[in-house]
Design a protein around this nucleic acid. Sequence first.
DNA 1: AAGTTTCGATACCTATGGTTTCGAAACCCA
DNA 2: TGGGTTTCGAAACCATAGGTATCGAAACTT
Lengths: 185, 185
Amino acid sequence: MTSSTPARPPGRPRSGINDVVFATTLSTVHELGYARATVERIAAAAGIAKTTIYRRWPTKGALIVDCLLDAFGPVPLEGDGRAEIIASAIRWTAGKLGEPGVGDAFAGVFSDGVSDPELREILSSRLQDPYRLALQEALGEPEHRVLFLIDVVIGTLLHRMGMTGEPMVDGDVDALVEMVLSFFR
Amino acid sequence: MTSSTPARPPGRPRSGINDVVFATTLSTVHELGYARATVERIAAAAGIAKTTIYRRWPTKGALIVDCLLDAFGPVPLEGDGRAEIIASAIRWTAGKLGEPGVGDAFAGVFSDGVSDPELREILSSRLQDPYRLALQEALGEPEHRVLFLIDVVIGTLLHRMGMTGEPMVDGDVDALVEMVLSFFR
DNA sequence: AAGTTTCGATACCTATGGTTTCGAAACCCA
DNA sequence: TGGGTTTCGAAACCATAGGTATCGAAACTT
């Protein structure tokens, strides 16, 4: 059984910098905005070479997506009843998007994806699909209804951030929860 | 009374190319996407010089915003009762965003605005405010409620377009209308 | 010690937004 | 007809950003 302990591949091992890169990426995006958070600046702030980043992530978009996956983690689907699950998921999403850099980074990649089909594919398959599948199962809703739910929640929160530069205030998140529940209940 | 017929300013008059530029901009964005629809390509397709565009619009974002204002025109607020007004406004918005190039252009400037405060200001004041004010008056709703309504409608429609590359299908627009009405009724 | 892979540094290419320059064209007025 | 003023088109140009190529040094395994 040679696969139980996967043999370390030959050569110099990769240094464990992913966490540093993720953290630096978010803080750089938070400070400078998405467009001015260049890969070169992120690398410099992380104390590594730009080539090292491009050796691990093929594009800036892929880096941001991985960064967001790391920042979000799995969606908590606790609560009894669909209403509670939906409400907590919405509030969790709003909270995450409000963390420094996260909303900017999300809006930024999303924007880039508009005119970049490859990035759009990454966004859809790596970022949206896992959450969509988890929600489908937890809510017992068909795919198109969950996709609609995601459009409403993410779209509304991102539009507010994009238009004002600030995350949505709690009162409006409450309204969003109420509105979505009145439709999905 | 010399101001009744405003004297034509001296010098060579501007050629009437705005309509051509708007149409060419949308078709170019439709064919190539927002990012690849460069100002140079738009100018070439319109048969004019790039410098002529920059003489009239200070940035690409300003050009797109004017282009969208021209494409959208005033929001029709017909129908008796708030429900009908809201429903028709949502469907009108969805229809406009579905026209070739309009949705891409909208999503594109919106994206750029995420990391460009000046563009965000243009978007907010020139594009959003007029519609917001008209809706506030027609619906008798306070500012923050109308802003929330705009976040939901535009955000949802743009998220769908950004994620799939296609405008939202009628069935989902119906769902959006129903959901919004259940909250604003 | 040999082999393999990563790292950092640097130079480089390409695309894009935006500016500058300058001669030619179009208009008004005298 | 000719001077003054402004726009137009063409071209060169600049800065920034994503991404690639190269190469010597470092860090592992066997």
